[in-house]
Design a protein around this nucleic acid. Structure first.
Lengths: 119, 119
DNA sequence: ATAACATATGAACAATAATTCATATGTTTG
DNA sequence: CAAACATATGAATTATTGTTCATATGTTAT
């Protein structure tokens, strides 16, 4: 099987060894799905704006709405998505709820994304 | 305006200074839109799988299709999206086109995302 | 030139998701 | 307790997006 595993594409172009390698390094389907879900959360400009606003300070829902020119409902819905993705966390104080970034991954991921955009 | 700028939420909860800060650090709308678009590209499990496959080796379209159990058309469509986002790059060799990762941001972004998922 | 093959593309369809509107929940104040 | 307020939620609507199917484009080999 010297030249035989470099077949034309009827089967595989690449060497068997590479196929093995690719398949063995590939994470479980569920993890890939979760990863896609995470990026999906970042994949909306409204949510990106909300995250950027929270870069500077914790803010309550109506602050965010006013700052970004969005309705209270839209912001609340999106905060729910961000919270589900563990990207923001709430702190309740009386009737108002303050949101802040959940951890540093948010900052590093967005920074990395920006780098790619700007090159 | 000492206590005055810590108004109840009829206007803004936060200090004027913070509002200024948030708005001044906020990138231009177009950039935020582009950033969301970038993350949107990562935000699909099929595309994530393709990128992971390309972690190990450059692959042609039909290799990817067979490796991942997808149709040629689906892979081609998604490669177009990945290419538009400058996440993969093509190398044409006769009738076959080999794709590889465009740069290291792909790896670092996915690695960062995985970290967040797994904690 | 014709046949076989790898990839790309367009249209149609199905599935997801974002926003709006109305309203519910829960908290504070008079 | 009632009114005012901040937030959350559900349903409906609109917009986006992924996949499939059919077919087009471009390349290699006979």
């Amino acid at each position: 099987m010297a030249e035989n595993d470099v077949e034309r594409c009827g089967f595989l172009f690449v060497h068997e060894a590479v196929v093995e390698q690719v398949l063995s390094e590939m994470p479980a389907d569920e993890k890939l799905y979760d990863l896609a879900e995470l990026f999906k959360v970042f994949g909306d400009s409204t949510r990106i704006k909300i995250l950027y606003a929270l870069f500077e300070a914790e803010l309550c829902v109506c602050d965010i709405a006013q700052l970004l020119g969005l309705t209270q409902s839209a912001v609340s819905h999106q905060l729910r998505v961000l919270k589900a993705g563990r990207l923001v966390k709430p702190r309740k104080d009386g009737k108002t709820v303050f949101y802040s970034l959940a951890d540093d991954h948010v900052r590093t991921l967005i920074a990395q994304g920006m780098e790619h955009i700007e090159e």
